[in-house]
Design a protein around this nucleic acid. Structure first.
Lengths: 344, 344
DNA sequence: AATCTGACCGAAAAGGTTTTCTGACCGTAG
DNA sequence: CTACGGTCAGAAAACCTTTTCGGTCAGATT
């Protein structure tokens, strides 16, 4: 174990000319050698590479970026890190970029437009090659504007402008998928207890529900979708009301996993067996909620990590000169657990 | 084969010399005018500022950083973005930096040492001014090494090296705090159902428990702490075992909120009223878990966001030449909810 | 009138890398 | 022996900003 010569901090970082000097060549040659350019004799290249290694040289990305006009960085602008929806998107994006040679600046605007502007300016000043904007809730948000010097991709919350590219999850498809699954389980009296009706996503899921029911020639049990809040308490209350009014329900599609937890609770208290008497499907596939429910909750997963990855790909494409625009809806995925089962 | 017309935004970014030209001064003067240097006439400065505004000039941080030897960026290296512990730390750090003029590179190593090394190299190549390393679990982890060219702060998981600076939460203090609260509620027969004993944090909490009991001249109810996993199921099982063995328990301190949820469940099934018969305290203050429990769960909050903020401050200090080292334990905070109350 | 003092502005260097262009050298063909 | 082609190395420019240093000019002082 050789004691490292302490390359004390504050020590000037080793530069390409240090490498060149040690290898006995010019900086130009050193650069070419390290970058695999072909105009260097093999033996010279080896000498340079060796020198670089010995000095543990790492090229200054700033200098490189300054010259190239590209920095290999992107900005990830979120509005709500606290919420649990941003994180998977962020992970997907970071993952997709991280495997290449792009680094990610993270900014959280905390839902404040001023702060968002501030961050955008800071990022542009750092000459990011592009931006991903992750909204706090899945409703349309203001565009950052058409005159930014770099491409932008909106994820989760679409931009209000059709000239931007937005990636969202297909809530209509998700609602349809849930009901199709319930129908596939032989259920016929299917109710929908939605979430907060001020969310477009909540209404979209209902659209999917109605589509799937129409195809099967069924009506919505309870006569209408019920809207409230995204809470467990609402799930409980709505379920009591529903069973009071329509006791023969055999399936409930809840607007979120939290609502579904409330639904399960109420069904339990009312003496209905899940999934025998009533099957329940949630939405979001929030692992901690769904997996720990009793019984574990079948749920629709909106694939946020995938959404983040696609956002990264689209942004990369745009940076490489192949921009796209419009709203792209990404499909959901059904995760079956114990709360649904075929009628026996 | 440029099939695509170059994006209109491929336009060269506006530079300081553009501003200078428009204002009719030299770049040197323009720079001084914009940076508030005192050697320019007020009227000249106004002309420059106006020109900069008209061109919406934003200075190139790369060029600035290249010259200054400081980039105003730091790397945030996490191992487990998916887990819910990294996020608050990350938010705190981003917040503390974001208010200044520092930007944050986010990297997730996914628990892989190779990937971590890769990210460190990339960050150093980008000449970050410092690094914050957020561990996946609160046990000591390998140091990145003593010979990095920039200061490093370890958060949540301390470094194995005492020469590094590590910030962790005070689990001993947290355990003590929980028991002191229970004693303050008049409880005397206090049991501890811990989590996974392979976690140092689980054992530390027990240490705090025993300290607080000793001060009050009490013994641990059940005769020993119980260890298992961080799961609801373990909480249920352990509680049944405990009540079987020691039926007169009047308080349970659980190793985590999930364990506490299991404890509550079991107590409910066994017909004990919470908090009248048995008071329960959880750990982590996981909002979604604690607030939705019935009754809502008193819990110990480990202040992760604060930890992130402090990490950012310490890193800034180190960057400014005032390094610190050793392990700094940050205090926890008691959040009282319905699951604890004074004996009546 | 000559010198000095400020106030203000500009030229130039520095920071690290990549790329283009030029130049040296060697071997081979004429 | 000359001309030529090919191979490899180096000099210099470019990217953009900040800072230092020197210079000009007006007005004040001796």
């Amino acid at each position: 174990m050789a004691a490292h010569p302490p390359p004390a901090r504050g020590h000037r970082a080793v530069t390409l000319s240090d490498v060149a000097r040690l290898a006995g060549v010019s900086v130009a040659t050193a650069s070419k050698a390290l970058n695999g350019r072909r105009q260097v004799k093999a033996e010279t290249r080896a000498r340079v590479v060796d020198a670089a290694e010995r000095l543990s040289f790492s090229p200054n990305a700033l200098a490189r970026g300054l010259l190239a006009g590209r920095t290999g960085t992107v900005g990830l602008l979120t509005s709500d890190l606290e919420g649990r929806f941003s994180i998977p998107i962020l992970m997907g994006a970071e993952d997709a970029f991280g495997s290449g040679r792009t680094s990610v600046f993270l900014c959280d605007a905390r839902g404040d437009a001023i702060r968002e502007q501030h961050h955008v300016r800071a990022l542009l000043s750092r000459r990011v090659d592009g931006l991903i904007v992750v909204g706090a809730r899945p409703d349309p948000r203001a565009s950052l504007g058409p005159d930014l010097p770099v491409p932008v991709v909106y994820a989760y919350a679409p931009s209000e402008s059709a000239d931007d590219l937005s990636l969202v999850s297909d809530n209509v498809g998700g609602g349809r998928m849930a009901v199709e699954h319930l129908i596939g389980c032989g259920r016929r009296r299917i109710a929908h207890i939605g979430g907060d009706p001020t969310y477009g996503a909540a209404r979209d899921r209902t659209v999917g529900v109605l589509e799937a029911l129409a195809v099967a020639g069924l009506e919505l049990a309870g006569g209408q979708p019920f809207y409230g809040t995204w809470s467990e308490a609402w799930g409980r209350g709505a379920t009591r009301m529903l069973l009071d009014r329509t006791p023969d329900v055999d399936a409930i599609f809840a607007g979120s996993d939290q609502v579904a937890r409330g639904v399960l609770d109420a069904l339990h208290e009312l003496g209905r067996d899940v999934p025998r008497d009533v099957a329940v499907v949630g939405f979001d596939n929030w692992e901690a909620m769904a997996a720990n429910a009793r019984p574990p909750l079948t749920s629709i997963d909106i694939n946020l990590e995938h959404l983040g990855r696609v956002a990264a790909q689209r942004l990369s494409a745009a940076i490489d000169g192949e921009p796209t625009s419009g709203i792209e809806a990404l499909p959901c995925r059904l995760v079956t657990r114990g709360s649904t089962a075929p009628l026996t």
